[in-house]
Each structure stands twice: as C-alpha cells, then as structure tokens.
Write a protein that binds this DNA or RNA. Structure first.
Lengths: 177, 177
DNA sequence: CTTTGCATGTAAACCGTTACATGATTTT
DNA sequence: AAAATCATGTAACGGTTTACATGCAAAG
C-alpha cells in the first residue's frame, strides 16, 4: 500500500495525536491556544479528516464515552508514526502562505489621507499586540510542553513584537512624499 | 444595484488596477515581485475574476493587441473606484491568515534529534533570508512607487530580518531539556 | 532555431470556512 | 433554570492551486 499523501490538515492532526491521545475537540482547543498564529483549523476539517485517517490506517480511534457524552480518542498506528516521521524529516520546500489584509490595504493606501493611513497602522499594531499578550500569557506553562511548542512560542512572540515596533516606527515617521 | 461584495482576490485586482491600467499578466508580475510576501495570486484566479469584475461594472477592459499578441488592459469605472475606496476605509476587522509549515514542523520537533531540529531552523532562516535579499534588491526603486508600496516593503524587510535573527538566536541556544 | 518571456484562458481537484444540527454535562 | 462548555458531525458554498492548452514575439 503506497503511503497516502498527507494533506496539510492531516499533518497537524497526526502531530497533535502524537502529543498524546486526543479527541477532535481537544485537538481544536490545543491548536487554538498554541498554534493558531501559524496554523488554523476548523471542526469542518478535523472530523472528516480524522475519519479518513482512520480508514487509511494511520490512526485508530477508541470510544471513550463519559456518561452519555460521546467522545472518541485517537492514537497513532505504526503506519501513522512513520507517516509523521517521514513528513517531519522530508527536506522538501516548506510551504509558507500569508494573507494579510492590513498589508494589502497599506500597499494601496496612497489614496487615503495621512490620518486614515495612520489609523490603519494603529489597527495593525493592535492586532499584533493582541497576539503578543496572548502568547505572553501562556509562556510560563509553555516550557513544560516540550521544547518544540516552546520554540514556536518564542518565535511567535519575537515576530509579533517586532511587528508592533515596526508599526510604531512607521506611524511616527513624517508623511513621505 | 447593490454593491457586489468584493472577494479577497478582487480587492487586490482593483487596487492593482488603480495603480495604472493593467493587464492580468502585469498584475501577476507586480504582485509577485512586491506583494507575494503578504498576498499571493495565481492566473487561475486573476483571469476569471477580471471577467466577473467587468460584468459587475467595476472595471472596463480595452483590447490593446500588439501585433498578433493579444492583450487586454483594464481601468476602474467610478463604481470600481467607489468599491475600492469603500473597502480601504472599511473599519471591519482585517483578515490575517498564516500557514507556516516550518513552524508546524518545529512545533512537533520533539521527536527529531537536535541536529535535525537545527537543520529545520536553518532551512527556515534561509527562507526568510531569501525574502530579505529580494526585498533589499527592490528597495531603491520602491520609494518612487508611492509610499504605500514603500511602507509595506519596510515592514516586510523588518519582519523577515527579525525572523532571521530569531532563528539564529534559537539555533545557537543549547538544547533544552 | 530554440529558448525565454509575453499573454490569455479553462477544468478538475482540492482545501477550507461557515452555518447548521444535536445533545449531554457542568457551572453559575 | 439558564448559560457555558464538552462533544461530534454534515452540507453548502466559496476560494485557490494545479495542470493543461494555445500561440506570438524577442533574444540568444
């Protein structure tokens, strides 16, 4: 059986499951607090993809209902471990996609007056500051969760702090010709 | 006629056309050199979307064939100008999406050995350095193209330089427990 | 004369969000 | 008793990439 190509979401799923048995719900929670700033997922992808991964033999699910509340937790099969490991070690180019509407507006901002442009820069600044605040909040716990999560947190914090500074810098400069 | 909601791609298209009459091909070139690091587009979106925008009355196209080579350039109608201006001034939350496979791998890198993790950090560093090099190359011309493009270039340069530094910093740190 | 660049377009496949639907348990 | 949280799922829609298809013009 040829190893099914992992789509982007399934890589996140396999990784999250490797971090410990997980339900779709838990994966979503964990992704939202610690990975959302570089990778987003929605339930609409998670549940169908978990099914597909199980059918493909990369994960196995166990029903673990608590009382009348349904709950299904997954763990990696050895094929799943292999698939994850193969992806992690794959030297192929890393995809990198950004869609930043603030930057797009700034790019076209020559038709705005200076005050409107400054407002835009302040909005962008605020958004990055929010991420900084959220990440700074979870930083104390992050060290326990393994160095991978900790490294990404450090990068995220550094990046968004740099953006905050840059926005301040540009907003402070006098209007350019 | 209710103003048709602009989808993400059409906003880029309208903005690019405002910068001067443009063909689909030119828009793609300009986007690739100056906006790709915060917004990507493909021909598969550009040509169909230009048609839709023309049908919606936001742009008008003129055939401007050169010899036997087809070419169609577009300009904004007043409805198009209004739509663009409305979006630029719209205070609604700015969408911001990132999908960074390097960060995702780093997040799950606890199952890699230190050398493999370092290699990953170096790969990420190289990718950001490439963007810095490309942007630094076009910086001299950028000032002429309006302050919008110049501001985004400054932000991009600052951001990717910060990421290069951060990758160096983290790679230099001794392996964490 | 062959490769690179200019120029436009379509179709299929894939990916992803959003809105909807349902119901149990825990907290206030 | 109500609200928040746990928990799973589907359907419709929309957006995007990729691969394909075509042909002219300029440069090497």
């Amino acid at each position: 059986m040829a190893p099914a190509t992992l789509n982007p979401t399934s890589r996140l799923l396999l990784g999250m499951i490797q971090l410990g048995k997980r339900s779709g719900y838990e994966i979503k929670q964990l992704a939202d607090i610690s990975a959302r700033f570089f990778w987003n997922v929605s339930y609409g992808q998670i549940y169908p993809e978990l099914k597909r991964l199980e059918e493909a033999g990369l994960i196995t699910g166990e029903d673990e209902a608590q009382g009348g509340r349904a709950r299904r937790v997954y763990s990696l099969t050895s094929a799943g471990e292999q698939a994850l490991s193969g992806w992690l070690r794959d030297p192929a180019a890393l995809t990198y996609e950004v869609r930043d509407e603030g930057m797009l507006k700034l790019f076209f901002s020559d038709s705005l007056d200076p005050a409107e442009r400054e407002r835009l820069l302040r909005t962008m600044r605020a958004r990055h500051q929010e991420v900084v605040d959220r990440l700074a909040e979870i930083e104390p716990d992050a060290a326990d969760k393994g160095s991978g999560p900790y490294l990404t947190l450090r990068l995220g914090l550094g990046f968004h702090r740099a953006m905050v500074e840059l926005c301040d810098e540009l907003a402070a400069e006098p209007a350019r010709r």
